[in-house]
Design a protein around this nucleic acid. Structure first.
Lengths: 271, 271
DNA sequence: TATAAAGGTGAATCCGCAC
DNA sequence: AGTGCGGATTCACCTTTAT
């Protein structure tokens, strides 16, 4: 283990056992290929200013980023739903705990998710001592209709924004957000269109976020020069927004396919 | 204990040990004064078609409907935040469990709450085997600005809508909702103004909901004649909406002050 | 060439039916 | 009773054709 540097000015000193898979020329961006829990455990404490995470979840069959093949099989040969939920909550708690260790005392974390996972996230945050500042509602005004007609059209996603603890003096660029909102306090409801298919120029990621969403998050919760971490980097939207606004970026992603996609997207942005 | 009647046509046969504090002439509405856990435990299984609940919560000092005096005091003479959260989650789990027992197999439950409690509710629902159908976002377009400028204006409240289990064939009046939404599928984002102070004619309740919100919930999730339960009846908005649309109502409330308020409001509606 | 109208495509879940 | 297949469903977006 290298010497720990607890100042936040230490992106160039992340001298951990894992080589970054990608690192830009001026070391403003790194992406590590591997397991978030392992890699986060090697980062120095309090080394990042802000975290954005769009975590995978294991319910309802699982997607490509999912270790769902490794589920706990219970008696009677059937998937036990509550057991699966507990397993998922354990995973959620673990990565949120690792994130909290590397987060600056005045830093904040933003976690997006749909119904399947967001309540586990919110509850785990509260259990771990995070202080939830807002439930931000991302309203996708162009959401596709439900094919089944058994409930309301799912047109929102929730983003939980939390400070590290009750004692934090967290960053919030209030005036900038007020300007962006046309002179009034910005509300927790954000109408932002979901990315169209044609916007996914370099490939597909199942939950790719619009850059406009990450722009707002980066601008609201960080300063120029800050280090922003995304432990489930995916297609790299967080990195694009971070660099676009003069922040530094550390991503972690376990699928090399997505790392390549993220690098291509970041390079196409001339950042 | 009386004979159990598992049909849902049994409002007049809720012959439990607790006398309703209020009961209307045609027995379309009852309000029980007392503790929800006790009273729910006496109701027959599967005796209500739909439940709406706006539960109390114990965090951040507690309000008037709150048993917060009975908190767990831990060592060092300070409130232990995670412990408080676990206590709160235990309470949430208990009442959701009791509700599930009295809910018809094809019935649904709607639970409203803010950040402080809604994630505990959602997670407990998943743990108990409920199936969440939607996170409904109630957008209060007339929400007051935040006094502190440390986060975004809290302008939404979440309502979790859930079926009893994955196997349920729950009620959803799709076509009616589609009409209401102007011919397209209704989305999970509902813009409804918060009640003005002048609407609170007969007294105050800290989290009083607009009748328009309950109108929509009642119309979406129940049929005429159905029994609707509100285990934290408060100022009785659920009862007003239920009777207005020809449903029956069972409320439970532990503060006699609110029971009186609810009765006054229901009588003023000529129902 | 620009704008408008028309038509095709795609997403996920529920249901009934056959076995 | 459980499994498994196929059909039905909605609306935003993109493409094609018409004005």
């Amino acid at each position: 283990m290298p010497e720990t540097d607890n100042t936040p000015e230490n992106l160039t000193r992340f001298d951990i056992d894992v080589e970054p898979h990608f690192q830009d020329a001026r070391d403003r961006a790194r992406i590590y290929l591997g397991d978030s829990l392992d890699i986060l455990g090697q980062f120095p404490e309090r080394s990042v200013h802000m975290i954005f995470a769009d975590p995978p979840y294991f319910l309802s069959g699982g997607g490509p980023t999912c270790q769902s093949g490794r589920r706990v099989r219970v008696d009677k040969g059937a998937w036990d739903k509550p057991a699966t939920i507990e397993v998922n909550h354990t995973f959620t708690t673990r990565w949120l705990e690792k994130c909290r260790r590397v987060l600056d005392d005045n830093g904040t974390i933003w976690v997006s998710g749909t119904t399947h996972v967001i309540h586990s996230v919110g509850f785990a945050m509260q259990q771990l001592g995070y202080r939830i500042l807002n439930d931000i509602i991302w309203f996708k005004s162009n959401a596709p209709p439900n094919l089944g007609c058994r409930c309301f059209t799912h047109s929102t996603e929730t983003i939980l924004w939390a400070a590290k603890s009750r004692a934090s003096k967290h960053t919030f660029n209030y005036e900038l957000m007020k300007e962006t909102a046309g002179g009034k306090q910005m509300r927790n409801l954000w109408e932002i269109r979901a990315p169209a298919k044609s916007e996914k120029t370099f490939g597909k990621h199942p939950t790719q976020k619009p850059v406009a969403l990450l722009d707002r998050i980066v601008l609201a919760g960080s300063h120029a020069g800050d280090v922003i971490l995304d432990p489930f980097s995916g297609s790299g939207t967080t990195g694009i927004a971070a660099l676009r606004h003069g922040r530094r970026y550390v991503g972690i992603e376990r699928e090399s396919e997505y790392v390549e996609l993220a690098v291509k997207r970041m390079q196409a942005e001339h950042v």
